[in-house]
Design a protein around this nucleic acid. Sequence first.
DNA 1: GCAAAAGTGTTCTTCTTACACCCATGG
DNA 2: CCATGGGTGTAAGAAGAACACTTTTGC
Lengths: 245, 245
Amino acid sequence: METIHLKDFYQRGDQVFLPHVSVDCVIFGFHENQLKVLLLKWKGGQWCLPGGFVKHEESVDDSAVRTLEERTGLDHIYLRQFYTFGHPNREKGKKIPDARSWVNKRFISIGYYALVEFSKVNPQPDILSTECRWWDINKVPALIYDHKEIIKKALESLRMDLNDHPVGYNLLQEKFTMPELQRLYETILDESLDRRNFQKRMLALEIFERLKERRTGGAHKAPYLYRFDKKKYERALKQGLKQGW
Amino acid sequence: METIHLKDFYQRGDQVFLPHVSVDCVIFGFHENQLKVLLLKWKGGQWCLPGGFVKHEESVDDSAVRTLEERTGLDHIYLRQFYTFGHPNREKGKKIPDARSWVNKRFISIGYYALVEFSKVNPQPDILSTECRWWDINKVPALIYDHKEIIKKALESLRMDLNDHPVGYNLLQEKFTMPELQRLYETILDESLDRRNFQKRMLALEIFERLKERRTGGAHKAPYLYRFDKKKYERALKQGLKQGW
DNA sequence: GCAAAAGTGTTCTTCTTACACCCATGG
DNA sequence: CCATGGGTGTAAGAAGAACACTTTTGC
């Protein structure tokens, strides 16, 4: 992350970044059987999505990648553009210290969602914020602008993508159990699934490898551990999965 | 359509439009059993997608609607945002008469596709072009920038949307036959479908009304005419159709 | 009367859903 | 020893694919 002074950013940021264009990232994680989103607390006290601006010679995708890296410390993240928000009143209530700043102008924001492994993330605030932390998807606080709507649309897109993209690889730790994978799907879809049918369906995708180990330590019968078979997983990502759900 | 002079547009267009942001529209029509796209011929002789810019106080959606109206003469068009193209080299080979013009800068383009009733369209060139006409989707000429890729992605999105949106209403004339609807689906999907299964599936959607008339005049047995049942169609649009394909 | 397209219904197969029994573990 | 969660298989139902015969029309 480059160091940039706030005053510089407001006054001369447009020498580095395109005006009127921003990127917002809905970063999903999964922890303790809950779907989480990473949010930032503005200096004003309100919460918002991590976002950024597009450098003059930078691709929009790269700008999203950069934001992701800066907020999470991770690279090679699963990232997907899902919608562009372009209503002129989307930033209602906008207040920037310097009224003449380029940042004070209208912004069209390109929405990306990311899937990250919760335990690997080291949340980092940006220069405009004081705090960066996970929120339960069902307990998101009031957000600035249209950010609530952006999250809603991100979640809808994620649900759609679940149809033909194996999604656990990005959200779970390397080794995981079927019940864990099922919780993940149930959380994203917000519905409960039949244990036996779920397992059958998942295994039918043929992208998993069952290990001989089991997850011990918990109460009750120890479940098997699985991991993604990298080769088959990659192939599935390219071809799209067989239809389902 | 407002009259605007070309020189003004290049020199002072940024007083009206946002810099760095454009809209590209892939306008689909259906005629003589072929899927068509509406293209413009630039004054330089190359072909491109109809597009436009976003006014300072205008929503991006409205900007697309305006472009659509200007090129086709139609309003209330089925329109869908499908992707935003933001690579810095997407406009390779760009040549604008005035090198200092705002238009000469990099643009991020928000892609929309539209479905229109071919026979109702009155193609109109814009101020930058000399010709506006339909091209068969399989015979699209060389296009500027990344416009070929934009069409490709639009078509992919349309194919996806076919899963849960009844699409004929926007592309066919008011009254149509099942075989015609089938040609439309086959053209979009680029695969042939079984006549009997197709009809069953369509009728199972329960959004059609079969008329007593038949389409006479052609050779062979006269097929029935159908039209969309407006109420049921609207409901289906909102709820999404039952899964299929 | 023949070729070509359209109307219609049935069977087979596949996928989806529903559901029951036994096993392991911690308390 | 019992409550709870996990492993597995089977049967019924729904959805999709495959397919054949009859009718209409222009030539």
